[in-house]
Computed example of a mutant assay.
Amino acid sequence: MASVTFKGNPVTLIGTEVKVGDKAPNFTVLANDLSPVTLEDTKGQVRLISVVPSVDTGVCDAQTRRFNEEAAKLDNVKVLTVSVDLPFAQKRWCAAAGIENVQTVSDHRDLSFGEAYGVVMQELRLLARSVFVVDSTDTVTYVEYVSEGTDHPNYEAAIEAAKAAK
């Protein structure tokens, strides 16, 4: 499993670590209107999945805003931001932040995404900061488990991986 710390403290990740070349695991999360969202819903598209502990924190806010800006420049790439924030909080945050190109989804209900991608921080019941790119054939082409939860991901590498995926 990936080795991750949060504010310098080691955390235990629950679930299955995903690697480049793996078939992307399906999941069910909730949209801001409480409707279910699955990986299958975007079949045939490239997906950039940005995972954050909570959109209400500085680095998570910056990460979501950065991918929102980049999403406007990407053709045939669906950008999702996954957190365990309640859908209502995500909706309120997106409205206040002007987020229009990224779909925020909540894994609060049953940690379906977090367990499928190995990003549930057991001690905090939050998702570990990470980025995944899944191509149109549901193959994982890029993975980053950010080693320190308060650090930024490698935006450039993730964006380039999304551009390169078919």
Rank of each mutant, 00 (worst) to 15 (best):
K91H: 07
A165E: 07
A165V: 13
V134E: 05
R65N: 01
I14K: 13
Q103K: 06
R66S: 06
L126A: 08
A72G: 05
L127D: 03
V79N: 08
D85C: 04
K7R: 08
L111A: 09
E148L: 06
D61R: 01
N101F: 06
D107K: 01
V37W: 01
F88H: 00
N76G: 15
V143G: 10
R129Q: 11
N32M: 07
V11H: 07
A128F: 11
T104W: 00
V29M: 05
G15V: 15
F113N: 02
T12G: 15
V46N: 07
T139C: 14
S3L: 14
D22N: 14
L34Y: 04
K78G: 07
T16P: 11
N32C: 05
F27M: 06
G149D: 14
V146D: 06
H152T: 08
G8D: 10
D110H: 10
I49H: 08
G149K: 01
I49M: 12
Q45S: 15
T141S: 11
P25S: 04
V134T: 10
G114K: 09
K163F: 12
L127K: 01
G149L: 06
L111W: 04
I99N: 00
A62R: 00
R65A: 03
V77W: 03
M121N: 11
I14H: 10
D151I: 12
R92N: 04
V37M: 02
Q63H: 03
S54P: 07
V131K: 06
R65P: 00
T150L: 06
D75K: 13
T139I: 15
A2H: 11
T38N: 07
A96R: 00
V37F: 03
V18M: 10
Y155V: 08
E17W: 12
S136P: 04
S54F: 06
